[in-house]
Design a protein around this nucleic acid. Sequence first.
DNA 1: AGGGCAACCTGGGGGC
DNA 2: TGCCCCCAGGTTGCCC
Length: 295
Amino acid sequence: MPELPEVEVVRAGLERHVVGRTITSVEVLHPRAVRGHEAGASDFVGRLLDATVTAVRRRGKYLWLDLGSSPEPAGAPEEGLLAHLGMSGQMLMRPPGTPNERHLRVRLGFADGGPELRFVDQRTFGGLTPVELVDVDGTRVPRPVAHIARDPMDPLFDPVAAARAIRRRRTGIKRALLDQTLVSGIGNIYADEALWRARLHGTRPTDRLTARQARETLDAATAVMAEALAAGGTSFDALYVDVNGESGYFERALDVYGREGEPCRRCGTPVIREPFMNRSSFSCPRCQPRPRAQR
DNA sequence: AGGGCAACCTGGGGGC
DNA sequence: TGCCCCCAGGTTGCCC
């Protein structure tokens, strides 16, 4: 589901609702939601009980809670609770006693008796994992996130280095944009939107892009995600919601994604849909011509 | 080494 | 109505 803007909406909501609170009850309703934790569901529960949330952070599409013991120890946090929303994950704040959501997977209750944090996930591609935090290039991140590149909203994001990394790859530009180890946070929607803005077809070979083209594509991705974030995220339906269950409304502003047959907003040519890695790519065949056959 | 693809799931919608 | 196929915003692991 969610790409960077949607995950950031969730992060900001969690920050408002759980920082400073101590976890005193943990219920795992579906083992698959904690499959990333090898020690299993009961160990998962034990690791979270009595932990205090000290911060809520994000890199790309990964989200995590910094956890401290209570009372607060000195120094950098050593542990966290990592969340990935997969295709359909939601983090919802709900008053205790609220009926279980159909796809409720994990429930965290707090010492103050206030709203619970519920992880709801229809397709179960997402999950929660207790993690060790490690230093990577001067930033503390969960160990499973160590290989994920900084995202464009990161103050330390280096667009020149990211453009260079993309051009070093021998692949198509869309594949490179989706590669979370080159630049993180971009998914299928924002990749298509960025390529439309940059007037590039997704199969354009990265190693034949100019530095300027690579940079402009990254800048376009950054801009479209910033706009989506300002609008509260993109949502097509009730699956994509903030911690209060409210939908964003950015879908009206998408230029190509999901607009097969509708006129390109620049030139009026009907937008086309092409198969791509078991999913879809949308583009304007005139503004974004497919590259000539490879030599 | 690095690229590309199937697999992991559930549910909604369209066609027959 | 029912069934079946296709589609969905992600990531991993495995094969080449």
